[in-house]
């Protein structure tokens, strides 16, 4: 039986306090990669591309996707490497679950924390994008909500992987076989219409694809082509993954 109580917030708070101590290190680590993508790909590669993509410059096309993908990577990192470290090496989970905080609460706290980190990282990226003059609509004020949802999705997904992982190596498979392909085939770098039909169909299942579409619409102030589908694909798999992760972690910890 799975029951998450409001005590998850205690675990979130623990992570927050320990994060504050390494605030700057964390920040640089999270932002480095996405900025690199934006500058190298957006301005570097973009300079060679004469044509506009969907009516915008390449860097403009790229930027909204980089915002959500930076959120994705932050959540994945937090709930794989960091959570695994806490679970196996530091035994933080062991220490917490002999208090009234149960393992379900620990998992929920870590997932919401992962989503929080994702939100921070996505927001930082958003500010960078805005500084480059690439934000064109007040609708972009909804970006924090979007990147929190993205964060929650990938934090849950990552936590599920962590619950199954025998060791750190397992995470490289996850990153190389799941996360990276998703990153390249969800419409961040090229419009989906470039791909053959079956790739388009496949990428339509990735929640990240839907997040990218929403992000682009919010940043540009355009109406997304399929808003309801986008939102459903972002939320429903997250709920499933979250409970699956909680269940799987409970099975692992409580033997």
């Amino acid at each position: 039986m799975i029951k998450v109580s409001q005590r998850w917030i205690k675990v979130w708070y623990r992570n927050y306090i320990s994060f504050l101590k390494f605030f700057y290190v964390n920040l640089v680590g999270n932002l480095g990669d996405p900025i690199l993508y934006l500058v190298a790909m957006g301005f570097g590669l973009g300079a060679f591309l004469g044509n506009k993509i969907e009516g915008m410059s390449y860097v403009q096309f790229l930027a909204p996707g980089i915002i959500v993908s930076s959120a994705m990577f932050a959540a994945v990192y937090e709930c794989t490497f960091e959570s695994f470290l806490k679970m196996i090496h530091l035994r933080t989970y062991d220490a917490i679950i002999v208090t009234p905080v149960n393992i379900e609460d620990v998992v929920a706290g870590d997932v919401v924390w992962g989503a929080t980190k994702a939100m921070l990282s996505g927001l930082m990226m958003f500010i960078v994008v805005a500084a480059f003059g690439l934000v064109h609509s007040w609708w972009s004020l909804l970006i924090p909500v979007l990147i929190f949802l993205v964060g929650f999705h990938f934090a849950s997904f990552a936590m599920l992987i962590t619950a199954m992982a025998p060791n750190f190596d397992y995470f490289s498979y996850f990153l190389e076989l799941v996360i990276t392909p998703m990153f390249f085939f969800c419409g961040i770098f090229f419009p989906l219409s470039q791909f053959p039909g079956w790739v388009q169909g496949l990428s339509g299942v990735f929640p990240l694809t839907h997040a990218v579409e929403l992000s682009r619409a919010l940043v540009m102030g355009t109406v997304p082509a399929r808003p309801v589908t986008n939102i459903l694909f972002l939320i429903i798999p997250s709920i499933g993954l979250f409970y699956w992760a909680v269940w799987r972690m409970k099975k692992r910890m409580i033997k």
Partner: peptide
């Protein structure tokens, strides 16, 4: 299994927080 991300004093106060 002390919390290595926190100092000695915070280990205790954080644990207290788990007990509300």
């Amino acid at each position: 299994n002390l919390d290595e991300d926190l100092n000695v004093f915070t280990n205790l106060t954080m644990y207290a927080n788990y007990f509300n």
